[in-house]
Amino acid sequence: MAYLEIENLAKSYDGKTVLNSFSVSLEKGQILCLIGDSGSGKTTFLRLINFLSKKDAGKIFLDGKEITKEGRLTTKERQAQAMNFGLVFQSFNLFPQYTVMQNILLPIKTKVKKTLKEKKLSRKDFKVEYNKIMEEKLKEADNLLLKVNLQDKKDSFPNQLSGGEAQRVAIIRTLMLDPKVLCFDEPTSALDPRLKRQVASTILSLKEQGHTIIVVTHEMELASAVADQVIFLEKGNIIEKGGREILLNPQSDELKNFLSLEQCEEINNGQTDDPETERARGTLFSLSQD
């Protein structure tokens, strides 16, 4: 069984199918790119695996265990399962009233508290242990911010960040929770071309660290630069899937239509050692752990 196995995931709203019998296998450390037009079901898929929407049918296996179960899940159960996945939202969704560092530490504080509560420590031990762990986490966050050249921004508020900076903060905030699968929803949609290449670089460096990643995008350049597997969706159905080569040699008419000639050319450039893309492949900045 692959690291992430999704079987026949389905969802419909008001009788209209938005995701139909979606199945995929992903090995640890691989990158899956979902491409397709708006309304093709890409974001629905991300919402389902992050437990933000309830599935109608289907199973999800992660690291050999089924993480979905039949029947109603409580919010807590749903959330516990959702924590296996980390989601970097399209609009980043940083909390505006907190600084960069506070944004990064808020969820980790909750996680640490929950973990320690399960240990049923005395109040004093709890405090000592909590402070010790948070000190380490603070150092870890500092380190990550340094690696993405944002250390001087740790006391800035989200409205003082550029789109690229906000995205890197959102990635760090998610990474700190150590999810098994990292998901990106349209990571390049709000960024200029230079920053788009930085995103590709970031995703590739995360892969180098062994992260399993799912990227939802309609940017062919990004998909061709990072994907190990590509799935093309249309109206909730998988039309074509395979390696990134399907972007160069699409078999279905739907994918051929989707990939305009111009986009195909961009992909070719990406595949022929375009210096910009190569730079994006890991030299701009790195999130690699020590």
Binding site: L52, L94, L177
Partner: peptide, 8 residues
Amino acid sequence: EAGFVLGL
């Protein structure tokens, strides 16, 4: 939703 996926 961000709060939810971040475990709050």
